[in-house]
Write a protein that binds this DNA or RNA. Structure first.
Length: 471
RNA sequence: GGCCCGUUCGUCUAGCGGUUAGGACGUCGGCCUCUCACGCCGAAAGCAUGGGUUCGAUUCCCGUACGGGUCACCA
């Protein structure tokens, strides 16, 4: 392998980027970045029916959000960079002609109907169907409609050393003369992939474990072309809760959905990396650490269930560790989406500082901070418990305490609250809870002194007055 | 069905012949405490199964079971 290995991520734009695809992209990207190689992005849009520009755009958007930048591919070196398979038809036709001319492939005149009949017959006789190669030695009549099939070796075995699964070998008898070009002349996926990987100088192909069985036929093509194949690394699947292949019914699977749910890209990367890959006992990795420590050696063979809980945990860890100023930056769009009024930057950073240890997602951070943006009426349950009887008297007293301070600073408030509690011979909770409900509308919030200070003396007094007036 | 791959706590995983089978998430219990969190301490919980190989198997080999993948003029 060269010193600067080239790897690629080759999604087909038949849908958005989902968790599985994102992980494949990540592993390829990590491989490239770790080795100082190139990460190539190729759009496999040969399926004209299902491929759309919107999907391509969505995939690029997701990759950008994750920060998986590519060195070659769409929009690198101009909008028409030749990394869309739909733009590479001439190249494929050329190779098909070459194979035909060299006798490595042949035209097949069998019709779909004939083939179907043979398959049906095989099934009826409980036999394994395999194309019988009728056209392999038939006289060539290029003017008739035909597909093109590759001549695969009849005997021996075809094998390779998978970087993850080890040696995988299969008897050539189980391989067929597979079709490389359709009747309309367009090439088949397995063919196109190989040609592109050759053309783009790909050294390592990393893909999902469903590619395992595609590898042998692809290998026969490398052989026919006389080109040394790349190395392969197949990645175990990510499964849903019920151990079936991950799909929409298992919950959100699109990368953008997680972004909208308030997951940080760094957390997503960390999470994705830890499904099927490990580095000793380490759980938390920064982007840089992933690059530094990634190795295919660490990739496991077993498909695993998508551990949604762990994603939330990692995200929480990330939020806790983040600089409030940076967190504020990230939280901005979520405030807007929640329809809350903007507050001064300084205030927002303070909100983030107070709430980061209480927020598992950016969405949650905003949700539990509503009362810092707007006045929230006391919840009924909280009011019945903390806003009647002696609680109201305490609240009145606290009001005066706050009013007596210059700026309601936490360091000033605390001794005054404690003194008050001692005076009445009660716990601090008897005092703090009514205030909390009056100020935040609920019973859970950051420390009461911090809440008062952040709200400010004037606003705190106003909220308490409003509650006192209402009762 | 043929072929291919896999199987360690509920989950993600470490382990690469000899370990009290480790960590993490989650769960439960406790401490801290003005609430909620955070933090700290602790607990329960695992090598699918049967044969080999070996002085010794979670680890190596074979079978069985279970799970997944793949068998297109889809990608």
């Amino acid at each position: 392998m060269s010193h600067q290995p080239r790897v690629r991520f080759a999604p087909s734009p038949t849908g958005y980027l989902h968790i599985g695809g994102a992980r494949t992209a990540l592993f390829n990207w990590l491989y490239a970045r770790h080795a100082g190689g190139k990460f190539v992005l190729r759009i496999e849009d040969t399926d004209k029916e299902r491929s759309t520009d919107e999907n391509t755009a969505a995939i690029l958007e997701s990759l950008r959000w994750l920060g998986l930048d590519w060195d070659e591919g769409p929009e690198v070196g101009g909008p028409h960079a030749p990394y869309f398979q739909s733009q590479r038809g001439a190249l494929y036709r050329e190779r098909i002609e070459q194979l035909l001319a060299e006798g490595k492939a042949y035209r097949c005149y069998c019709t779909t109907a004939e083939l179907d009949a043979k398959k049906a017959q095989a099934r009826a006789e409980k036999r394994q169907y395999q194309y019988d190669r009728t056209c392999r030695d038939r006289a060539d009549q290029p003017e008739l409609p035909h597909t093109v099939r590759l001549k695969v070796p009849l005997k021996g075995t075809t094998g390779f050393d998978d970087l993850v699964y080890g040696r995988i070998e299969v008897a050539n008898e189980s391989l067929q003369d597979w079709i490389i070009a359709r009747t309309d002349g367009s090439p088949i996926y397995n063919f196109v992939v190989v040609i592109d990987d050759i053309e783009m100088g790909i050294d390592v192909v990393m893909r999902g474990e469903d590619g395992l069985n595609n590898t042998q036929p692809q290998l026969t093509l490398y052989q026919a072309l006389g080109v040394a194949p790349p190395r392969f690394a197949h990645l175990p699947f990510i499964l849903g809760q019920d151990r079936s292949k991950l799909s929409k019914r298992h919950g959100p699977v699109s990368v953008t959905q997680y972004r909208d749910d308030g997951i940080l890209p760094e957390a997503m990367l960390n999470f994705l990396a830890r499904i099927g890959w490990s580095h000793g006992d380490q759980e938390l990795f920064t982007r840089e650490e992933l690059i530094e420590k990634f190795s295919v050696e660490g990739v496991g063979k077993t498909a695993g269930v998508f551990p949604a809980d762990k994603l939330i945990w990692i995200n929480h860890e990330r939020i806790k560790a983040m600089e409030p100023s940076l967190l504020a930056e990230k939280v901005l769009p979520f405030i807007e989406k929640a329809g809350l009024p903007m507050v001064p930057r300084e205030t927002l950073e303070e909100i983030c500082r107070l709430q980061q240890e209480r927020s598992k997602t950016l969405v949650e951070l905003v949700e539990i901070s509503r009362y810092f943006f707007v006045r929230v009426p006391p919840e009924e349950k909280a009011a019945t418990k903390f806003l009647q009887g002696p609680s109201l008297d305490y609240l009145r007293e606290v009001r005066e305490i706050i009013a007596s301070t210059a700026d309601a600073a936490p360091s000033v408030l605390e001794p005054l609250f404690i003194a008050m509690a001692e005076k009445h011979g009660i716990g601090l909770g008897k005092i703090a809870q009514p205030v909390r409900v009056a100020l935040t509308g609920g019973t859970a919030s950051p420390g009461i002194y911090d809440v008062i200070a952040l709200l400010g003396k004037a606003e705190s007094l106003a909220r308490i007055d409003a509650v006192l007036a209402a009762s």
